[in-house]
Design a protein around this nucleic acid. Structure first.
Lengths: 203, 203
DNA sequence: TGTTTTTATTAACAGTGTTAATTATATTTG
DNA sequence: CAAATATAATTAACACTGTTAATAAAAACA
Protein backbone atom coordinates (compact mmCIF):
# COMPACT_ATOMS: atom_id res chain seq x y z
CA UNK A 1 0.00 0.00 0.00
CA UNK A 2 2.63 2.53 -1.04
CA UNK A 3 0.11 4.98 -2.35
CA UNK A 4 -1.77 5.34 0.89
CA UNK A 5 1.54 5.86 2.62
CA UNK A 6 2.66 8.54 0.21
CA UNK A 7 -0.67 10.34 0.46
CA UNK A 8 -0.38 10.27 4.21
CA UNK A 9 3.04 11.82 3.87
CA UNK A 10 1.82 14.46 1.47
CA UNK A 11 -0.98 15.32 3.83
CA UNK A 12 1.49 15.81 6.64
CA UNK A 13 3.79 17.84 4.45
CA UNK A 14 0.91 20.10 3.54
CA UNK A 15 -0.02 20.44 7.20
CA UNK A 16 3.56 21.38 8.00
CA UNK A 17 3.59 23.84 5.15
CA UNK A 18 0.48 25.53 6.53
CA UNK A 19 1.80 25.57 10.07
CA UNK A 20 5.10 27.02 8.99
CA UNK A 21 3.40 29.78 7.04
CA UNK A 22 0.99 30.37 9.88
CA UNK A 23 3.75 30.80 12.43
CA UNK A 24 5.28 33.43 10.19
CA UNK A 25 2.02 35.35 9.85
CA UNK A 26 0.87 34.89 13.45
CA UNK A 27 4.20 36.01 14.88
CA UNK A 28 4.38 38.90 12.47
CA UNK A 29 0.84 40.23 12.93
CA UNK A 30 -0.54 38.75 16.13
CA UNK A 31 -3.65 36.64 16.45
CA UNK A 32 -6.34 39.12 15.51
CA UNK A 33 -4.49 40.52 12.51
CA UNK A 34 -3.79 37.11 11.08
CA UNK A 35 -6.36 36.07 8.53
CA UNK A 36 -6.86 32.78 6.80
CA UNK A 37 -6.54 34.63 3.52
CA UNK A 38 -3.12 35.96 4.43
CA UNK A 39 -1.94 32.49 5.33
CA UNK A 40 -3.41 31.16 2.10
CA UNK A 41 -1.55 33.81 0.16
CA UNK A 42 1.68 32.82 1.86
CA UNK A 43 1.36 29.20 0.79
CA UNK A 44 -0.16 30.13 -2.58
CA UNK A 45 -3.35 28.17 -2.09
CA UNK A 46 -6.94 29.28 -1.88
CA UNK A 47 -8.13 30.21 1.63
CA UNK A 48 -10.57 27.35 1.95
CA UNK A 49 -7.88 24.77 1.31
CA UNK A 50 -6.63 25.33 4.84
CA UNK A 51 -9.96 24.08 6.12
CA UNK A 52 -9.25 20.71 4.56
CA UNK A 53 -6.33 20.31 6.94
CA UNK A 54 -7.46 22.22 10.02
CA UNK A 55 -10.96 22.55 11.41
CA UNK A 56 -10.72 26.30 11.86
CA UNK A 57 -8.45 29.17 12.88
CA UNK A 58 -8.59 28.10 16.51
CA UNK A 59 -7.38 24.60 15.81
CA UNK A 60 -4.66 25.92 13.56
CA UNK A 61 -3.58 28.28 16.29
CA UNK A 62 -3.25 25.43 18.75
CA UNK A 63 -0.46 23.92 16.67
CA UNK A 64 1.31 27.26 16.49
CA UNK A 65 0.87 27.58 20.25
CA UNK A 66 2.58 24.28 20.84
CA UNK A 67 5.49 25.00 18.55
CA UNK A 68 6.05 28.40 20.15
CA UNK A 69 6.18 26.78 23.57
CA UNK A 70 8.75 24.42 22.15
CA UNK A 71 10.82 27.41 21.10
CA UNK A 72 10.61 28.88 24.60
CA UNK A 73 11.51 25.52 26.08
CA UNK A 74 14.65 25.32 24.01
CA UNK A 75 15.59 28.81 25.10
CA UNK A 76 15.29 27.87 28.74
CA UNK A 77 17.48 24.86 28.11
CA UNK A 78 20.15 26.66 26.08
CA UNK A 79 22.56 26.40 28.98
CA UNK A 80 22.72 23.44 31.31
CA UNK A 81 26.00 23.54 33.19
CA UNK A 82 25.90 25.61 36.33
CA UNK A 83 28.12 26.01 39.36
CA UNK A 84 25.27 26.22 41.80
CA UNK A 85 21.55 25.46 41.73
CA UNK A 86 20.68 29.09 42.34
CA UNK A 87 22.58 30.03 39.20
CA UNK A 88 20.49 27.60 37.22
CA UNK A 89 17.31 29.15 38.53
CA UNK A 90 18.61 32.61 37.79
CA UNK A 91 19.44 31.61 34.23
CA UNK A 92 16.03 30.12 33.56
CA UNK A 93 14.30 33.14 35.00
CA UNK A 94 16.39 35.54 32.95
CA UNK A 95 15.92 33.50 29.81
CA UNK A 96 12.18 33.51 30.31
CA UNK A 97 11.96 37.28 30.47
CA UNK A 98 14.50 37.69 27.68
CA UNK A 99 12.43 35.45 25.46
CA UNK A 100 9.38 37.58 26.10
CA UNK A 101 11.16 40.82 25.34
CA UNK A 102 12.97 39.55 22.28
CA UNK A 103 9.95 37.70 20.90
CA UNK A 104 7.12 39.98 21.90
CA UNK A 105 4.48 38.69 19.55
CA UNK A 106 5.37 35.08 20.23
CA UNK A 107 5.05 35.69 23.94
CA UNK A 108 1.71 37.40 23.45
CA UNK A 109 0.44 34.41 21.53
CA UNK A 110 1.73 32.09 24.22
CA UNK A 111 0.62 33.70 27.44
CA UNK A 112 -1.07 37.04 26.95
CA UNK A 113 -3.92 36.83 24.47
CA UNK A 114 -7.24 35.40 25.41
CA UNK A 115 -7.29 31.77 24.45
CA UNK A 116 -9.50 31.55 21.40
CA UNK A 117 -10.82 28.24 22.63
CA UNK A 118 -11.07 26.50 25.95
CA UNK A 119 -9.83 23.38 24.22
CA UNK A 120 -6.35 24.81 24.32
CA UNK A 121 -6.50 24.84 28.06
CA UNK A 122 -6.94 21.12 28.03
CA UNK A 123 -3.95 19.76 29.92
CA UNK A 124 -3.31 17.19 27.24
CA UNK A 125 -2.60 19.91 24.74
CA UNK A 126 -0.05 21.71 26.87
CA UNK A 127 2.88 19.39 26.33
CA UNK A 128 5.66 21.92 26.03
CA UNK A 129 3.92 24.39 28.29
CA UNK A 130 4.01 21.84 31.07
CA UNK A 131 7.62 21.09 30.25
CA UNK A 132 8.52 24.74 30.71
CA UNK A 133 6.79 24.81 34.05
CA UNK A 134 8.60 21.67 35.06
CA UNK A 135 11.93 23.32 34.36
CA UNK A 136 11.15 25.93 36.98
CA UNK A 137 9.85 23.34 39.37
CA UNK A 138 12.97 21.22 39.01
CA UNK A 139 15.25 24.21 39.40
CA UNK A 140 13.55 25.08 42.66
CA UNK A 141 13.72 21.44 43.64
CA UNK A 142 17.43 21.37 43.07
CA UNK A 143 17.93 24.10 45.62
CA UNK A 144 17.41 21.20 48.01
CA UNK A 145 15.72 23.26 50.59
CA UNK A 146 13.36 21.94 53.16
CA UNK A 147 10.11 23.67 52.29
CA UNK A 148 8.83 22.73 55.70
CA UNK A 149 5.51 21.51 54.40
CA UNK A 150 5.10 24.43 52.10
CA UNK A 151 3.81 23.62 48.67
CA UNK A 152 6.53 23.50 46.08
CA UNK A 153 3.96 24.16 43.35
CA UNK A 154 2.90 27.29 45.10
CA UNK A 155 6.42 28.64 45.13
CA UNK A 156 6.87 27.76 41.46
CA UNK A 157 3.67 29.52 40.56
CA UNK A 158 4.76 32.54 42.55
CA UNK A 159 7.99 32.85 40.65
CA UNK A 160 6.35 32.36 37.30
CA UNK A 161 3.63 34.86 38.13
CA UNK A 162 6.25 37.41 38.98
CA UNK A 163 8.24 36.78 35.82
CA UNK A 164 5.12 36.84 33.71
CA UNK A 165 4.05 40.08 35.34
CA UNK A 166 7.36 41.72 34.50
CA UNK A 167 7.30 40.32 30.99
CA UNK A 168 3.76 41.13 30.04
CA UNK A 169 3.66 44.61 31.54
CA UNK A 170 6.89 45.36 29.71
CA UNK A 171 5.93 44.11 26.27
CA UNK A 172 2.39 45.46 26.47
CA UNK A 173 3.87 48.85 27.23
CA UNK A 174 1.67 49.42 30.20
CA UNK A 175 4.47 50.81 32.37
CA UNK A 176 4.79 54.57 32.87
CA UNK A 177 8.30 55.84 32.24
CA UNK A 178 9.24 56.40 35.85
CA UNK A 179 8.67 52.76 36.64
CA UNK A 180 10.69 51.46 33.79
CA UNK A 181 13.89 50.33 35.38
CA UNK A 182 16.55 47.89 34.42
CA UNK A 183 14.96 44.55 33.68
CA UNK A 184 18.02 42.62 34.78
CA UNK A 185 17.81 44.30 38.11
CA UNK A 186 14.16 43.32 38.42
CA UNK A 187 14.91 39.70 37.68
CA UNK A 188 17.62 39.68 40.28
CA UNK A 189 15.06 41.08 42.64
CA UNK A 190 12.69 38.31 41.71
CA UNK A 191 15.30 35.72 42.59
CA UNK A 192 16.14 37.56 45.78
CA UNK A 193 12.51 37.61 46.74
CA UNK A 194 12.17 33.91 46.17
CA UNK A 195 15.44 33.31 47.94
CA UNK A 196 14.43 35.27 50.97
CA UNK A 197 11.10 33.61 51.04
CA UNK A 198 12.87 30.31 51.12
CA UNK A 199 15.08 31.50 53.94
CA UNK A 200 12.02 32.42 55.92
CA UNK A 201 10.47 29.01 55.42
CA UNK A 202 13.66 27.34 56.53
CA UNK A 203 13.84 29.20 59.79
CA UNK B 1 -25.62 82.68 23.98
CA UNK B 2 -27.96 80.16 25.55
CA UNK B 3 -28.34 78.09 22.42
CA UNK B 4 -24.66 77.40 21.94
CA UNK B 5 -24.49 76.40 25.58
CA UNK B 6 -27.39 74.04 25.32
CA UNK B 7 -25.96 72.44 22.20
CA UNK B 8 -22.67 71.98 23.99
CA UNK B 9 -24.51 70.27 26.80
CA UNK B 10 -26.43 68.06 24.41
CA UNK B 11 -23.21 67.08 22.71
CA UNK B 12 -21.72 66.09 26.05
CA UNK B 13 -24.84 64.19 27.02
CA UNK B 14 -24.65 62.26 23.76
CA UNK B 15 -20.98 61.52 24.37
CA UNK B 16 -21.81 60.26 27.82
CA UNK B 17 -24.62 58.16 26.40
CA UNK B 18 -22.23 56.54 23.94
CA UNK B 19 -19.55 55.96 26.57
CA UNK B 20 -22.03 54.42 28.95
CA UNK B 21 -23.33 52.06 26.30
CA UNK B 22 -19.78 51.28 25.19
CA UNK B 23 -18.68 50.31 28.67
CA UNK B 24 -21.57 47.90 28.83
CA UNK B 25 -20.68 46.29 25.52
CA UNK B 26 -16.90 46.35 25.96
CA UNK B 27 -17.07 44.82 29.44
CA UNK B 28 -19.60 42.25 28.26
CA UNK B 29 -17.82 41.16 25.09
CA UNK B 30 -14.21 42.31 25.28
CA UNK B 31 -12.45 44.59 22.86
CA UNK B 32 -12.43 42.48 19.73
CA UNK B 33 -16.02 41.35 20.03
CA UNK B 34 -17.30 44.84 20.52
CA UNK B 35 -18.47 46.39 17.28
CA UNK B 36 -19.54 49.91 16.52
CA UNK B 37 -22.80 48.47 15.27
CA UNK B 38 -23.50 46.75 18.58
CA UNK B 39 -22.89 49.99 20.44
CA UNK B 40 -25.09 51.82 17.97
CA UNK B 41 -27.84 49.31 18.55
CA UNK B 42 -27.57 49.83 22.30
CA UNK B 43 -28.11 53.58 22.01
CA UNK B 44 -30.60 53.17 19.17
CA UNK B 45 -28.69 55.31 16.70
CA UNK B 46 -27.10 54.45 13.41
CA UNK B 47 -23.50 53.18 13.62
CA UNK B 48 -21.95 56.15 11.88
CA UNK B 49 -23.44 58.59 14.36
CA UNK B 50 -20.78 57.49 16.85
CA UNK B 51 -18.15 58.81 14.48
CA UNK B 52 -19.60 62.29 14.90
CA UNK B 53 -18.58 62.17 18.56
CA UNK B 54 -15.50 59.96 18.54
CA UNK B 55 -12.81 59.71 15.89
CA UNK B 56 -12.82 55.92 15.85
CA UNK B 57 -13.08 52.81 17.96
CA UNK B 58 -9.64 53.39 19.42
CA UNK B 59 -10.46 56.86 20.67
CA UNK B 60 -13.74 55.65 22.07
CA UNK B 61 -11.93 52.86 23.87
CA UNK B 62 -9.59 55.33 25.51
CA UNK B 63 -12.49 56.90 27.40
CA UNK B 64 -13.68 53.49 28.54
CA UNK B 65 -10.12 52.71 29.62
CA UNK B 66 -10.00 55.75 31.84
CA UNK B 67 -13.34 55.10 33.45
CA UNK B 68 -12.43 51.48 34.18
CA UNK B 69 -9.23 52.62 35.87
CA UNK B 70 -11.38 54.92 37.94
CA UNK B 71 -13.46 51.95 39.01
CA UNK B 72 -10.34 50.05 40.03
CA UNK B 73 -9.07 53.09 41.89
CA UNK B 74 -12.25 53.31 43.94
CA UNK B 75 -11.95 49.64 44.78
CA UNK B 76 -8.44 50.10 46.09
CA UNK B 77 -9.67 52.98 48.23
CA UNK B 78 -12.77 51.25 49.56
CA UNK B 79 -11.12 50.92 52.96
CA UNK B 80 -8.81 53.53 54.45
CA UNK B 81 -8.49 52.88 58.16
CA UNK B 82 -5.80 50.41 59.09
CA UNK B 83 -4.02 49.43 62.26
CA UNK B 84 -0.64 49.09 60.64
CA UNK B 85 0.92 50.17 57.34
CA UNK B 86 1.51 46.58 56.32
CA UNK B 87 -2.20 45.92 56.64
CA UNK B 88 -2.91 48.77 54.29
CA UNK B 89 -0.51 47.33 51.73
CA UNK B 90 -2.05 43.92 52.13
CA UNK B 91 -5.53 45.31 51.58
CA UNK B 92 -4.58 47.17 48.44
CA UNK B 93 -2.81 44.14 47.04
CA UNK B 94 -5.75 41.86 47.78
CA UNK B 95 -8.21 44.35 46.36
CA UNK B 96 -6.20 44.58 43.18
CA UNK B 97 -6.30 40.84 42.55
CA UNK B 98 -9.91 40.61 43.67
CA UNK B 99 -10.87 43.29 41.20
CA UNK B 100 -9.19 41.35 38.42
CA UNK B 101 -10.90 38.11 39.30
CA UNK B 102 -14.33 39.62 39.86
CA UNK B 103 -14.16 41.89 36.83
CA UNK B 104 -12.27 39.74 34.37
CA UNK B 105 -13.19 41.53 31.19
CA UNK B 106 -12.63 44.94 32.75
CA UNK B 107 -9.19 43.87 33.86
CA UNK B 108 -8.39 42.51 30.42
CA UNK B 109 -9.36 45.82 28.89
CA UNK B 110 -7.26 47.66 31.44
CA UNK B 111 -4.02 45.74 31.53
CA UNK B 112 -4.04 42.64 29.38
CA UNK B 113 -5.08 43.39 25.83
CA UNK B 114 -2.71 44.93 23.40
CA UNK B 115 -3.24 48.65 23.42
CA UNK B 116 -5.07 49.45 20.20
CA UNK B 117 -3.18 52.69 19.94
CA UNK B 118 0.09 53.99 21.25
CA UNK B 119 -1.73 57.18 22.10
CA UNK B 120 -3.20 55.46 25.09
CA UNK B 121 0.27 54.96 26.46
CA UNK B 122 0.73 58.66 26.53
CA UNK B 123 1.30 59.52 30.18
CA UNK B 124 -1.19 62.35 30.01
CA UNK B 125 -3.96 59.91 29.28
CA UNK B 126 -3.22 57.67 32.24
CA UNK B 127 -4.71 59.81 34.97
CA UNK B 128 -6.36 57.13 37.05
CA UNK B 129 -3.80 54.53 36.07
CA UNK B 130 -1.09 56.67 37.61
CA UNK B 131 -3.28 57.23 40.65
CA UNK B 132 -3.56 53.48 41.17
CA UNK B 133 0.17 53.10 40.96
CA UNK B 134 0.62 55.92 43.42
CA UNK B 135 -1.54 54.11 45.93
CA UNK B 136 0.91 51.25 45.95
CA UNK B 137 3.86 53.59 46.10
CA UNK B 138 2.40 55.46 49.04
CA UNK B 139 1.56 52.28 50.87
CA UNK B 140 5.12 51.12 50.53
CA UNK B 141 6.28 54.55 51.57
CA UNK B 142 4.22 54.38 54.72
CA UNK B 143 6.08 51.32 55.84
CA UNK B 144 8.71 53.88 56.71
CA UNK B 145 11.56 51.63 55.94
CA UNK B 146 14.98 52.79 55.00
CA UNK B 147 15.40 51.48 51.49
CA UNK B 148 19.12 52.02 51.83
CA UNK B 149 19.44 53.67 48.44
CA UNK B 150 17.23 51.12 46.80
CA UNK B 151 14.74 52.56 44.36
CA UNK B 152 11.26 52.81 45.77
CA UNK B 153 9.82 52.74 42.26
CA UNK B 154 11.58 49.50 41.59
CA UNK B 155 10.01 47.87 44.60
CA UNK B 156 6.60 49.20 43.65
CA UNK B 157 6.94 47.84 40.17
CA UNK B 158 8.03 44.51 41.56
CA UNK B 159 4.95 44.18 43.67
CA UNK B 160 2.64 45.25 40.88
CA UNK B 161 4.31 42.90 38.44
CA UNK B 162 3.78 40.05 40.81
CA UNK B 163 0.14 40.92 41.43
CA UNK B 164 -0.47 41.40 37.74
CA UNK B 165 1.17 38.08 37.01
CA UNK B 166 -1.10 36.29 39.45
CA UNK B 167 -4.15 38.15 38.16
CA UNK B 168 -3.59 37.78 34.46
CA UNK B 169 -2.50 34.15 34.53
CA UNK B 170 -5.56 33.38 36.60
CA UNK B 171 -8.17 35.14 34.51
CA UNK B 172 -6.61 34.09 31.21
CA UNK B 173 -6.83 30.51 32.41
CA UNK B 174 -3.27 29.74 31.58
CA UNK B 175 -2.59 27.85 34.78
CA UNK B 176 -2.54 24.05 34.79
CA UNK B 177 -4.72 22.56 37.50
CA UNK B 178 -1.93 21.45 39.76
CA UNK B 179 -0.70 25.01 40.10
CA UNK B 180 -4.03 26.46 40.94
CA UNK B 181 -3.90 27.09 44.62
CA UNK B 182 -5.65 29.44 46.91
CA UNK B 183 -5.32 32.96 45.59
CA UNK B 184 -5.43 34.48 49.05
CA UNK B 185 -2.48 32.37 50.01
CA UNK B 186 -0.60 33.57 46.97
CA UNK B 187 -1.22 37.20 47.79
CA UNK B 188 -0.02 36.67 51.32
CA UNK B 189 3.05 35.14 49.79
CA UNK B 190 3.48 38.19 47.62
CA UNK B 191 3.41 40.43 50.65
CA UNK B 192 5.76 38.13 52.49
CA UNK B 193 8.15 38.21 49.59
CA UNK B 194 8.10 41.99 49.50
CA UNK B 195 8.37 42.08 53.24
CA UNK B 196 11.35 39.81 53.32
CA UNK B 197 12.96 41.72 50.55
CA UNK B 198 12.57 44.83 52.61
CA UNK B 199 14.09 43.08 55.61
CA UNK B 200 17.09 42.16 53.55
CA UNK B 201 17.59 45.72 52.37
CA UNK B 202 17.41 46.95 55.95
CA UNK B 203 20.14 44.65 57.15
C1' DT C 1 -11.54 3.77 -20.45
C1' DG C 2 -15.11 4.83 -17.02
C1' DT C 3 -16.25 5.35 -12.11
C1' DT C 4 -15.31 6.71 -7.64
C1' DT C 5 -12.70 9.11 -4.22
C1' DT C 6 -9.88 12.86 -2.88
C1' DT C 7 -8.27 17.62 -3.29
C1' DA C 8 -8.82 22.35 -4.47
C1' DT C 9 -11.41 26.32 -5.92
C1' DT C 10 -15.13 29.68 -6.52
C1' DA C 11 -19.26 31.88 -4.78
C1' DA C 12 -21.62 33.28 -1.05
C1' DC C 13 -23.14 34.79 3.82
C1' DA C 14 -23.09 37.54 7.73
C1' DG C 15 -20.18 40.16 10.06
C1' DT C 16 -16.28 44.01 10.82
C1' DG C 17 -14.29 49.43 10.87
C1' DT C 18 -14.73 53.32 8.37
C1' DT C 19 -15.63 56.98 4.60
C1' DA C 20 -18.50 59.58 1.21
C1' DA C 21 -22.78 61.03 -0.26
C1' DT C 22 -27.38 62.03 1.07
C1' DT C 23 -31.27 63.26 3.88
C1' DA C 24 -33.38 65.40 7.93
C1' DT C 25 -33.41 68.80 11.46
C1' DA C 26 -32.15 73.01 13.65
C1' DT C 27 -30.46 77.72 13.59
C1' DT C 28 -29.54 82.03 11.52
C1' DT C 29 -30.43 85.54 8.21
C1' DG C 30 -33.15 88.48 4.96
C1' DC D 1 -42.59 84.15 8.29
C1' DA D 2 -39.69 82.26 4.41
C1' DA D 3 -35.13 81.32 2.54
C1' DA D 4 -30.43 80.16 3.32
C1' DT D 5 -27.16 78.07 6.05
C1' DA D 6 -25.20 75.08 9.46
C1' DT D 7 -25.51 70.93 12.11
C1' DA D 8 -26.98 66.17 13.00
C1' DA D 9 -28.13 61.69 11.48
C1' DT D 10 -28.70 58.25 8.06
C1' DT D 11 -27.97 55.21 4.03
C1' DA D 12 -24.85 53.16 0.71
C1' DA D 13 -20.60 51.51 -0.11
C1' DC D 14 -15.67 49.58 0.30
C1' DA D 15 -12.43 46.38 1.60
C1' DC D 16 -11.82 43.38 4.93
C1' DT D 17 -12.96 39.01 8.28
C1' DG D 18 -14.09 33.47 9.35
C1' DT D 19 -16.49 29.98 7.46
C1' DT D 20 -19.85 26.87 4.67
C1' DA D 21 -21.98 24.95 0.39
C1' DA D 22 -21.60 24.04 -4.25
C1' DT D 23 -18.62 23.24 -7.99
C1' DA D 24 -14.45 22.02 -10.55
C1' DA D 25 -10.06 19.58 -11.01
C1' DA D 26 -7.07 15.79 -10.10
C1' DA D 27 -5.87 11.30 -8.65
C1' DA D 28 -6.84 6.43 -7.62
C1' DC D 29 -9.34 2.41 -8.50
C1' DA D 30 -12.22 -0.69 -11.31
Amino acid sequence: MGIVERREKEKNRMKEKIIKASIKIFVKNGYENTSMRKIAQEIEYSPTTIYLYFKNKTELFYHIHESLFEKLYKNLLSKTDFETPIERLRFIAKSFVSFAINNKESYRLLLVIKTPSTDINNENTWNFGIKCLSLFENAIDELQIDLNGFQKESLTFSLISYLHGISSLTIQERIPEKYKSNIDELINEAISLINNFIQKIKS
